[in-house]
Write a protein that binds this DNA or RNA. Structure first.
Lengths: 250, 250
DNA sequence: CGACTTGTTGATGTACATCAAGGTACGTGG
DNA sequence: CCACGTACCTTGATGTACATCAACAAGTCG
């Protein structure tokens, strides 16, 4: 697990591979100009490395350019709760930039590339580019909505419902970003990650995944994941097959 | 349970009883001016009444002027998860204003007074008052932080830990707003609310509260709550006795 | 090759939910 | 004043969904 590495290389924002995706809103020229100037570099981290640590405050705000990460909190005795997963386009470190301190940690799930934005210039974004400021709020509200859903999941759904819900949710997010191939995808998670996200033990997670596989709703292989029947998954999860919101910002 | 009632009366923002509390940041004159103009009225709702409903989109953004409310989500079969509690100074309906739809509901726990802000003018706030826009983001980040904590609570703590944590958390929030008297406070919750917030059954919540009372950490009476030993509560909860962040906005 | 990581399975224990009944306070109408 | 209903809390009996413990299997990886 190497240390985070600061990259001299910097993908110019005009060529950002994310902006052309349907999930992101188009940028005005002045916005693009500012963001390009706002972005101070890139951070490349290996899978398994900590990006941000509980109780520290970072000088930067990040967006995920490529790869997967997850936010989590730990109790002194080692119990861990994964709060959510970050995919390309997601904001990381907002709490640290807006509040004083971060009260959660972030770890790279795969090799990860982050765009770096100095928090000192965040204020300039708010004063000069209200549309971008609104996007930041939009992202925060969207993340809160996902947290709401996750909390309902952990608090009130049964093990198999939760598991189906989480897997379906992650698959759909990956799909929006073009990270899937039909019903298959590269799956960076270990069963331990699923367990810690759902507030379950590893063993019980294993049993539950097996039950899902037995019911022919999905398949879980080493680092790959396949949905066999979305309907079945959705039915088990109690998933609302609804909206798809367009996405702004990097 | 009456319908929400729109009030002709409108507390002028200069005399807002919240602004003088230590927990809120001071306003510049222009900010005060704008907020006063932004505020379009007040909504008075009785305890037990729904303020916002899942899957609807409201034309307004709200702040709590007085009283308690809670956000929650329900599953089709009636299981309910309380997401968090709103006290004076909290923002409600941001998701509905920024995203398209609300995916949670809000109910008044006590009689409640809300300040109303038309979402149509939110954009004006972002363009003309970046400091206030930043405050909105600040509030969103703070709420996310509380949700993180709540998720850790429900996912990874035991029943007694969760319960102690929630009660201590609520007590401290009330204390910051001057809603307590020493170690006592008026407590608007039923045990059912605690159960639904913690993802536990009513019966088990009752047992757990009894255990907390037996250990002389707190007392729970009809609509009142008393902390007998903060240390004991904090110890059981695994609570971090730390910071207190100053509060901006209304 | 062993050492380690990840997944799998079974045996056992326990923290929780569910079911059922009753208790206390407080209201309402007679 | 009492009889009655309702809302909320309390307690016990029983069941189950989960955690914990322990062992092993199957891939990596040095």
């Amino acid at each position: 697990m190497g240390d985070p590495e600061l990259s001299a290389r910097k993908v110019p924002c005009e060529q950002c591979p994310l902006r052309c995706l349907a999930a992101f809103r188009p940028f005005a020229d002045v916005e693009l100009e500012f963001v390009k100037e706002f972005k101070s570099g890139e951070l490349i981290v290996q899978a398994g490395t900590a990006v941000l640590l509980q109780d520290t405050n970072s000088a930067h705000l990040y967006t995920v350019l490529s790869g997967w990460a997850f936010r989590y909190k730990m109790l002194p005795d080692g119990r861990r709760q994964i709060l959510n997963f970050a995919l390309p386009g997601d904001l990381l470190g907002l709490q640290g930039s807006v509040l004083d301190k971060m009260e959660h940690s972030v770890e790279a799930l795969t090799d990860l590339t982050l765009c770096l934005f100095p928090r000192a210039k965040l204020w300039e974004l708010y004063t000069n580019h209200p549309s971008l400021a609104f996007d930041v709020t939009w992202l925060a509200a969207r993340e809160e909505r996902m947290l709401d859903e996750h909390l309902l999941n952990v608090g009130r759904r049964t093990a198999i419902e939760r598991t189906a819900y989480l897997l379906l949710h992650l698959f759909k997010r990956a799909e929006e970003l073009g990270l899937t191939e039909g019903d298959n995808m590269q799956f960076p998670f270990l069963q331990l990650h699923v367990a810690d996200a759902l507030g379950m033990s590893l063993v019980h997670t294993n049993n539950t995944l097996r039950r899902l596989a037995d019911s022919k709703a999905m398949r879980w292989g080493r680092k790959t994941f396949q949905i066999l029947s979305r309907e079945r998954m959705a039915e088990i999860a109690g998933y609302d097959f609804t909206e798809r919101i367009p996405r702004p910002f990097i």
